[in-house]
Design a protein around this nucleic acid. Structure first.
Lengths: 157, 157
DNA sequence: TCCATAAACATAGATATCTATATATTAGAT
DNA sequence: ATCTAATATATAGATATCTATGTTTATGGA
């Protein structure tokens, strides 16, 4: 795709298609974050909800580093998020007996309740979204998005 | 897993497909932001680049509110971004003669240079991305993403 | 045993983002 | 003419995110 019949200023033509997609994804991410945020229980942020939801969906306990990797954020970011959850009593940090460097994040009963409330509150929103975009289209979107995510992950090194 | 026959609590089964797509988009956004950031000239952020790129691509001057709307961020956010660009001499704020509430953002020569350098620096990255994901697939992604963006925008009110 | 290295996590300081609110200017109504 | 409402932007205070660096604990070789 090197030669194009349309002459454009060299190097300064409109965004490459990848840029356009990324811009669209950025905007969608912004709108999504704000929309989710506004439907979450007071004080609960999207980042915090994501951690609770992740651990409860998989029914596991994980270290801060494992969570950071799963959510693709930096480790200090996850340290901060986890501490916020701990301050609210939604998770507990359990020391590994054999290795005191390691602490695992365990969701408390209050944390479980909080997440379930949040999921219930978010449900109607998903319903409305599905009225405009049918489920099949959402499903069709997932594979190419996943390929992009993997490509980006490879490019990171 | 444990036992799959366990009846799940109503409303608390695995994420709806919309949640999964949003999660994927969130992660892609994170990876993209970091990747772009690492290829931009020192001191230039993705938010700042986006403003320069937007104004120069469309060859317009816009108010802070117009920019905020175009980028789908809050107005104070755009105020902050614009001030950073002004501090670096990459844009100028030009008062509307008839209405002194209004100031329009105009990219300076230094700002134009800075953006062109950034676009050039980002080019090779797009090339690499295109090796894994063909351009046709990127293009196919854009319409459904746009529909989602519009739906989200409608849901905001 | 002792010391260097690695691993897991915490801390510091930066930007971007939000909501809520304040300030300045203009427009409109009485 | 004046007072009120609307508009454009700024400020304040919060969280999430990053990179760079510090701290604690464990491991391994001399």
């Amino acid at each position: 795709m090197t030669d194009d019949s349309t002459p454009k200023p060299a190097g300064l033509e409109g965004d490459p298609i990848e840029f356009a997609v990324m811009t669209e994804i950025g905007i969608i991410n912004q709108l999504t974050t704000n929309l989710f945020q506004s439907h979450l229980p007071k004080g609960m942020t999207v980042a915090q909800f994501s951690v609770l939801n992740h651990l409860l969906r998989l029914e596991v306990q994980q270290t801060i580093s494992e969570l950071a990797s799963a959510m693709q954020v930096a480790q200090p970011t996850m340290s901060s998020t986890v501490r916020k959850l701990e301050d609210k009593g939604l998770i507990e940090l359990i020391y590994e007996p054999d290795d005191r460097r390691i602490r695992r994040v365990a969701v408390t009963a209050a944390g479980t309740q909080c997440r379930n409330d949040a999921v219930a509150a978010l449900g109607p929103m998903a319903e409305k979204l599905r009225k405009n975009i049918p489920a099949t289209e959402w499903e069709a979107l997932l594979p190419p998005l996943n390929r992009i995510r993997v490509s980006l992950d490879e490019l990171r090194s």
